[in-house]
């Protein structure tokens, strides 16, 4: 398996974390929150089973809920950023009320708004996203800071014992852009076809 790396800061390197979570993904469907998480899932290998978002800030986790409810037999993984999660923080309560076993929400927490000039987010000031998720009713809510914890998270995402939430503390370095297709009708249509086959286009 690809090595999980640490940056000079001592914190986990985001793309190595995402690569580890997605490697040998099987049936897993992945939604990437706008900005760096969308580039991260694309850097791990652009794939029809990925839905990288170019907008809809605050909506990634609850998109995952709609998808997880529609496809209960497949693991659904939302990978998003701390700023994006904070904007839709109420969706943790919405998700908790439904307790979808197949849904995992992983926040790559660099404590900054990366796309707009690295302004600090609330997590920079100690806001505990995993604690908020747990308090909302997502019992398996973790803070992830080590390689071993990433590997345990990788297994948990695949186990279908969710809902699961993870706040992964990552290094804040801005990495080279790896852009997915920008025509969003293609992004949705290719994912639907990957899930539903050619019948997707006749629904």
């Amino acid at each position: 398996m690809a090595k999980i790396e640490r940056a000079a800061s001592g914190r986990l390197e985001r793309r190595s974390v995402v690569r580890a979570l997605l490697e040998d993904r099987g049936e897993m469907l992945v939604i990437g929150g706008l900005g760096a998480p969308a580039w991260d899932i694309t850097a791990a290998g652009d794939d029809p089973r990925n839905l990288p978002l170019w907008g809809g800030m605050g909506g990634a986790a609850v998109m995952g809920l709609g998808l997880a409810l529609a496809q209960p037999s497949r693991p659904v993984l939302v990978i998003t950023g701390d700023g994006e999660m904070l904007m839709g923080i109420g969706s943790l309560a919405t998700i908790a009320t439904k307790q979808p076993r197949n849904l995992s929400v992983v926040v790559l927490d660099n404590e900054h708004y990366g796309e707009t000039g690295m302004q600090e987010t609330a997590t920079r000031h100690g806001v505990d996203l995993a604690g908020m998720a747990r308090a909302a009713g997502i019992a398996d809510s973790r803070r992830v800071e080590t390689e071993a914890e990433v590997l345990a998270l990788r297994e948990a995402i695949r186990a279908g014992q969710g809902p699961l939430f993870a706040q992964v503390k990552i290094d804040a370095a801005t990495l080279p852009l790896v852009l997915p297709p920008r025509e969003a009708s293609i992004l949705q249509a290719r994912m639907r076809e990957a899930i539903l086959g050619p019948a997707a286009h006749l629904q």
Partner: peptide, 18 residues
Amino acid sequence: LTTEEEGIAMLFGAWLGG
């Protein structure tokens, strides 16, 4: 939902899954 915009996002996820 906790706010209506979640519904717009949720329906998108639902459609992705058919």
